[in-house]
Amino acid sequence: MGSVSKIATVSDKEIELKNCVVCGFIHDTQDHLSHVYAPGNTTRFLINKFKLWKCTNCLTVHSLNQVDFADIYQDYPVNSYQTLDFFATFRFSNLLKRLQKAGLKQNHRILDMGCGNGIFVSYLKKKGYTSVTGYDPYVKKFSKLIFNEKFDCIIANDVIEHVENPRKFMSDCANLLLQNGILYFGTADSSDIEFNEIAKYSMKLHQPFHRILMTPTSLEKLGRELISFTLIKSFKRSYMDTLIPFVNYRFLDEFNKSLGYEIDLAFKPESKKKILLSPRLIFFAFFGFFFPCAYEPAIILRKGL
């Protein structure tokens, strides 16, 4: 892994976007109200500004700067520092319950698409799911996948917003699924993002890594486009939202806000002391579930009508 202190290399060249990638609405480059520059929220990209366009028709947010994916992910802090700790275990328990209710069995062949450093893969194996594969092209350990293999369940959680073409990504996942298998897609919600208050959405925008942010309606629309797939369940709230203290999205957002939305700092032990010194953070650690600040839509699809 590279050092997080490496100087950022961001292209000033923009993607030649003519239409919204979700609804096809014409991209009006002269509509300045639908464009904004947002800062990065990792140490490496904190001083950079990234141009965004929000489609006025379907509210999809597009990141317009061209990036080298291998470069930006070489020292991605979430992959570098995230561990299967006490709090991650409770978050993943919520996600697993969703999958179990949709029909996931312990003997199923499971693919965690875009698995990062593989902590959800590790969690599933600890829970008795023995046939679990992780794939992430930017993490060496998980960079290989035999694409003629088929799976009973494919999980793509917080991944679809990281790709340039979400429709193609969904289709690629669908092609790896066995008949009657289930697909899980979860992402961030672009509905409430206001460009005149861009700083407060730094965690959700997560530049330059989040390329396309959609609304729940758009996510469902793309899911319904998959031929011979049935939408069996949709969710509004994040799987990270629980009643367990410190395990809710509002607390995570408030904690990152207190660190200037520099998420590398959130993984450092010395930053944890900040929580104990802040009545506001302590309050949201215990009661943040009841004061949601953002939603993360998710859908579960089954292959077969």
Score class of each variant (00 low, 15 high):
48 N>P: 08
49 K>M: 07
50 F>D: 03
52 L>H: 06
52 L>P: 06
53 W>M: 04
53 W>I: 08
54 K>I: 01
54 K>S: 01
55 C>N: 06
55 C>E: 04
59 L>P: 04
59 L>H: 08
59 L>V: 00
63 S>V: 08
63 S>Q: 15
63 S>M: 15
64 L>M: 15
64 L>I: 09
64 L>R: 10
66 Q>S: 03
67 V>D: 06
67 V>N: 13
68 D>V: 09
71 D>R: 13
71 D>V: 11
74 Q>G: 02
75 D>L: 00
77 P>M: 03
78 V>I: 15
78 V>W: 13
80 S>P: 00
82 Q>M: 13
83 T>D: 12
83 T>Y: 10
84 L>Y: 06
84 L>S: 07
84 L>P: 00
86 F>D: 14
87 F>E: 07
88 A>L: 05
89 T>P: 05
89 T>H: 14
89 T>W: 07
91 R>W: 00
92 F>A: 00
92 F>T: 05
94 N>K: 15
98 R>P: 00
100 Q>D: 11
101 K>D: 12
102 A>E: 14
102 A>L: 12
104 L>D: 08
104 L>A: 05
105 K>A: 10
105 K>G: 05
105 K>D: 04
105 K>C: 09
106 Q>W: 02
108 H>Y: 10
109 R>C: 03
111 L>V: 02
112 D>T: 01
113 M>K: 06
113 M>S: 13
115 C>I: 08
115 C>V: 07
116 G>R: 01
120 F>Q: 09
121 V>E: 01
121 V>L: 01
122 S>N: 08
122 S>D: 07
124 L>Q: 00
125 K>W: 05
128 G>Y: 03
128 G>N: 02
128 G>F: 07
130 T>C: 12
130 T>E: 15
131 S>Y: 11
131 S>C: 04
131 S>D: 15
135 Y>Q: 07
136 D>V: 08
136 D>W: 06
139 V>F: 15
140 K>F: 14
141 K>I: 11
141 K>E: 12
141 K>V: 08
142 F>L: 07
143 S>N: 15
143 S>I: 10
144 K>Y: 14
146 I>T: 13
146 I>Q: 12
147 F>S: 12
148 N>G: 02
149 E>I: 07
158 D>F: 02
159 V>N: 09
163 V>T: 08
164 E>Q: 13
165 N>T: 05
165 N>K: 05
165 N>I: 08
166 P>N: 02
167 R>I: 04
167 R>Q: 12
169 F>V: 02
169 F>W: 07
170 M>K: 13
170 M>Y: 09
170 M>I: 15
171 S>Y: 12
171 S>C: 11
172 D>H: 03
173 C>S: 12
173 C>Q: 13
173 C>R: 11
174 A>T: 05
174 A>I: 04
176 L>R: 11
176 L>K: 10
182 I>Y: 00
186 G>Y: 05
188 A>I: 11
192 D>Y: 09
